[in-house]
Every structure is written in C-alpha cells, then in structure tokens.
Write a protein that binds this DNA or RNA. Structure first.
Lengths: 136, 136
DNA sequence: ATTTGCTCTGGAGTCAGCTCCAGGGGGCAT
DNA sequence: ATGCCCCCTGGAGCTGACTCCAGAGCAAAT
C-alpha cells in the first residue's frame, strides 16, 4: 500500500472510531442525522475525515458527555449552517448549556449526600456486628 | 371525609407523586418491576405508602439522579431481600456507586473545559465584530 | 343520582440513542 | 484467485425508562 498525505491527515472511519471511542455505526449515524457534515469519500467511496470534521466531533462528544440531548446539538449545527451571523446564538446556546451542567454537578453533589448518609448507616451496622457490645 | 391516622401517615399515590416528583405511573411501574415492595392497599384497594416505602423511594430517587441504572438498583433491592447478611454487599455497592459518581463529576468538569474553550472563541469573535480594528 | 376526581390493573405505545444485519464492494497478502 | 479485513448503504431491531390507555371502582360534591 502506498502511503500518501490522505492516509496521515484523513483517517478512515475505523481509525476515527479508535481515536474518539464512538463505534463506526454511531459515527455513520451522526452523519445520517446531520450532526456531522457529509464526510468526503475517497476513490473507494470510503469516508476520510478532515481535521474540521474531527474538531466538530470533539465538541459534539463533549456536548453529549455533559448530557446535551441530540435535539439541541441539532440546533447548534443548524446555527452553524446559518453562517457567522448566528455566532451570538451559538454562544448563548453553549453558555446556557454550561450553566445547566454546573447546576447538574451541584445537584449530583447534593444527591450524593443522601447516599453518603446511607453508607454511614451501613458502616455503623458493620461496626456493631464486629463489636456487638463491649459493655455486655 | 373522616380524617384518620392513615390519611396523615399513609399518603396515596397522588400525594406521594406530588411529594417526590415522580408520576403515579412511574411509582406503579417501580413497584411492578420490584424496586419497591408491594405497597399495602386500603379498603378501596388503593395504595397507602408507609414511611419505610418513602425512605426506600428517597434512596432510589437519589440513585437514579446520580445515574445508577435500574438493573443495579435491582441488585440493591435483591440484596435487601437477602437479609442483614448482605449488608457488606450493599455497602460495597453504594460505595462503588459513590466513587463512580465522583469520577463522573470530575469527567464533567473536564468536558466543560472543551466547551469553555469554544465559548471563549465565540466571545472573541463577537469582540472583533464590535471593534474591528482599532489601529485601522 | 349523576358528575367529578382519584384510583385500580394489565397491556400497549413512545422516545432517545444507538446497534445490528444483509448484501455488496475494494485492496492486499498468500 | 482466494481469503481476509475493512468499508459501503439502507433499513430493521434493540434497550432503558418511562408513559399512556381502556375499562372499571369508589367516594365526595352538586
């Protein structure tokens, strides 16, 4: 196999999959539903991802990881398609997502308090089992 | 309607729903799949939740809120059914969930970094738009 | 006595987000 | 030229977690 620039710069779907941790099926599916642009194909009609596709993908993955629903990612992509004039809207969308994520982190910490209380109760049970009554 | 102790101590499904924020359908469904014990019924065959049902429910809700899948909640309930001898296992389950939740919080914060970078880029775009070149 | 409102059961439907599959290449190692 | 491995498309299938519905009961209000 001859090595050319496209091999280095333009990974195939399997390489991207290994790189970012999404399955090839998921990558194809993101493209189908319009989260990614149509990825350019090589002579054999196989996908070759460009740097800009990977950049978009990185952001999408972080959005997903922080719990943004696909519908909202769709909105974001639609704004991109709307051109530079939509930058304030994109900023607003990201800022509001950021706020929500911080709120969710705070909520998680609160929820953990209840679980921690339960953990403490179980720890006490176990202590009592090991030292049933040192005054008996 | 005569007010008796059961009205105060034993809320109906609607009252519990208002209290905890799960729909009556979801409460019935949690019972069906065995996350909650069979709730005792009153003379009219309607559910009357006891304090211990509500305690369990509170924990389940916090488990869900912190992302524990139903299957693992099932395991926890199965351990309860296994009697006091399973307390070490229940503790282990809760502790491992606690760890995972802390890890997830850390991951969320990391993921936000990428989003924050994007936000900064958009902020810079907007600044440039407002003051295109102060040396022009 | 009829309407209103909550509840019941059991089963079906929904939605998000993937995941799998059939049927068909291309390219390279043996 | 025969595997083998990865890739293609389009559509179907799956899982988790609910959510809705039909058909019925009881009880307080009008």
């Amino acid at each position: 196999m001859k090595i050319d620039a496209s091999m280095i710069d333009r990974p195939t779907i399997g390489q991207v999959s290994d790189l970012v941790g999404l399955s090839p099926d998921t990558l194809r599916w993101y493209e189908r539903i319009g989260l990614l642009e149509t990825i350019p194909r090589d002579a054999a009609r196989q996908r070759r991802y460009r740097a800009l596709d990977l950049d978009r993908l990185e952001l999408l993955i972080k959005m997903r990881a922080t719990g943004m629903p696909l519908t909202e990612m769709h909105e974001y992509v639609a704004l991109i398609h709307g051109g530079p004039g939509t930058r304030p809207d994109r900023l607003a969308l990201l800022e509001s997502h950021r706020r929500r994520t911080l709120d969710r982190i705070a909520a998680l910490q609160q929820d953990l308090v209840v679980i921690d209380r339960k953990i403490d109760r179980y720890r006490n049970f176990l202590e009592d089992d090991n030292a049933p009554s040192h005054a008996g």
